[in-house]
């Protein structure tokens, strides 16, 4: 921990160490990408299921979904990680599961951000104009058919910007998973820091996370352009490549970020 000066004094050797450690760092990036991708997928499933359940016809379903969402929103990601990693194995039969670190990470990330996502899904289902619901009724479409054929495709376009932000949140949150022994990007860089003794490696880590976040932004921008085009609210992707590189807004609507 030698502050600013150490950085310049040891820049050359530090770079060499970084290059030498690149295979391990790439392993770490792989773990981070895996946790972020699988966690994101689980979060998406949870968000859609519990988002829809919150507008279900039966009060019991709505209340159960509400409790689930409030519970996982309310108890903090780190607590959930620790609980799955440290408490769960200590519980008596039939629990007492010792889960692999990746499973713990994916579960905690998916449950936590999925709960936030459920609010986003609920909010965007509510933002589909009332007239659409009325047209469903007027055509006597079943509520199921109306939900999946009419409402969800439109809500999808509305929810993508917020889901994009949440997925970036999830990527950022994943940097904590080394506390439950998943050897991710953060962990590998911390190892390099251990050797170089300076904070140099963390500059690299910040940059790597930043680039990973941009990958998410581009994927989600593409989905958003496509979804908007499908409901006639914007050009086709082939005519608007520039949209892919639009910086994300940070305000998550429909239940706010965290």
């Amino acid at each position: 921990m030698d502050g600013v000066i150490g950085f310049f004094e040891k820049l050359g050797p530090n770079l060499e160490i970084l290059v030498a450690r690149m295979p391990q760092i790439l392993d770490g990036i792989q773990a981070t990408v895996l946790a972020t991708a699988l966690g994101g997928l689980l979060a998406l499933v949870i968000a859609i299921v519990f988002g829809i359940a919150q507008v279900a016809k039966y009060a019991a379903v709505r209340i159960a979904a509400r409790i689930f969402v409030e519970f996982f929103r309310g108890t903090s990601l780190v607590v959930q990680l620790f609980w799955l990693a440290f408490v769960l194995p200590q519980l008596p039969y039939p629990f007492g599961w010792r889960l692999a670190p990746l499973v713990v990470a994916v579960l905690a990330l998916g449950l936590n951000y999925g709960a936030y996502g459920a609010e986003v899904v609920r909010g965007s289902i509510g933002s589909v104009p009332r007239g659409q619901y009325e047209a469903i009724s007027a055509l006597s479409l079943s509520p199921m058919r109306g939900m999946f054929r009419v409402i969800i495709p439109q809500a999808w376009a509305l929810m993508l910007p917020s889901l994009s932000n949440l997925w970036i949140q999830l990527l950022k949150g994943s940097a904590i998973v080394s506390t439950v022994l998943l050897y991710d990007l953060y962990f590998r860089v911390e190892q390099v820091r251990d050797q170089t003794g300076t904070w140099f490696a963390f500059l690299f880590a910040l940059l790597a996370y930043y680039l990973l976040a941009w990958v998410i932004v581009i994927i989600m921008n593409a989905l958003e352009v496509r979804a908007k085009h499908k409901i006639g609210r914007g050009p086709a992707l082939s005519k608007s490549w520039g949209m892919l590189f639009r910086a994300p807004g940070s305000v998550v609507k429909g239940g706010a970020l965290v």
Partner: peptide
Amino acid sequence: RMTPLVVQLVFANLV
């Protein structure tokens, strides 16, 4: 905004 708070914490602490 697009980088992890965790990394920022460690980074700032070291610096």
